[in-house]
Nucleic acid binder design. Structure first.
Length: 211
DNA sequence: TTCACGATTCTA
DNA sequence: AGAATCGTGAAG
């Protein structure tokens, strides 16, 4: 079924966003280019959103623009931010329940560290826009997630920092943001995080693997 | 039809 | 710290 090794199946996303979001850290976002080449990056920062809290796009009502968030898990939900930017989510949970994980940053092999440091930059780098909205995250569609290669060092609880979400005015108390501590590709570090941002094992590993 | 507001980013 | 910039939802 899975032609692509490590492909995260739709069932992976059929759980609450706050459960999926931390597990997505370290996974690969992969896009098959028109040329056939693969563009990929390590997900280093995510946020969870859920219908019952006010920061969620599905908090108020179901509309044409947030419809995907209410749909099947395992699809991309792409929305326009500030009229200019695009932000990419993967839908989680179950149908008829607005639930999803925002992809906030990724580390790309052989590219500037901050090329995808932020949700809009990530979307731009991967060339994603509203046309990708509602698209299933499967290899057959050309855009999907893969588990970290088995020979990479496993990411544990201690490698992730859990903190509050960014850029929202409501629901700021919820600790629903996670990022890879050592990564330099994170959009913004949490206040009080004094982890030396020097070590970037996974970024380096990614670069090495690409060559 | 009009208005206010961002799940952001870049610059000073 | 502040501006840029425009799609979208709620109000009128």
């Amino acid at each position: 079924m899975t032609r692509s090794p490590g492909h995260l199946p739709p069932s992976f996303f059929a759980r609450p966003a706050e459960q999926v979001a931390p597990e997505l850290i370290g996974c690969l976002l992969v896009k098959r280019q028109p040329t056939g080449e693969l563009l990929w990056g390590v997900v280093v920062e995510t946020e969870a959103y859920s219908q019952e809290e006010p920061a969620c796009h599905g908090y108020r009502r179901r509309t044409p623009s947030n419809e995907t968030l209410f749909g099947e898990p395992g699809r991309f939900y792409v929305y326009v931010s500030y009229g200019i930017h695009h932000c990419v989510n993967v839908v989680t949970g179950r149908s008829d329940w607005a639930n999803g994980v925002l992809l906030r940053a990724a580390a790309l092999p052989g590219e500037p560290e901050r090329a995808a440091a932020g949700p809009a930059l990530l979307a731009r780098r991967f060339g994603l826009d509203r046309r990708h909205d509602a698209q299933p995250a499967i290899p057959e569609q050309g855009l999907w997630f893969a588990a970290p290669p088995a020979h990479w060092p496993a990411i544990g609880e201690a490698d992730r920092l859990q903190t509050t979400r960014i850029g929202i005015s409501q629901g700021q108390e919820l600790p629903w943001r996670w990022y890879l501590r050592r990564s330099r590709c994170v959009s913004r570090r949490a206040r009080g995080d004094r982890t030396p941002p020097a070590a970037e094992a996974h970024t380096v590993a990614a670069g090495a693997l690409a060559s």
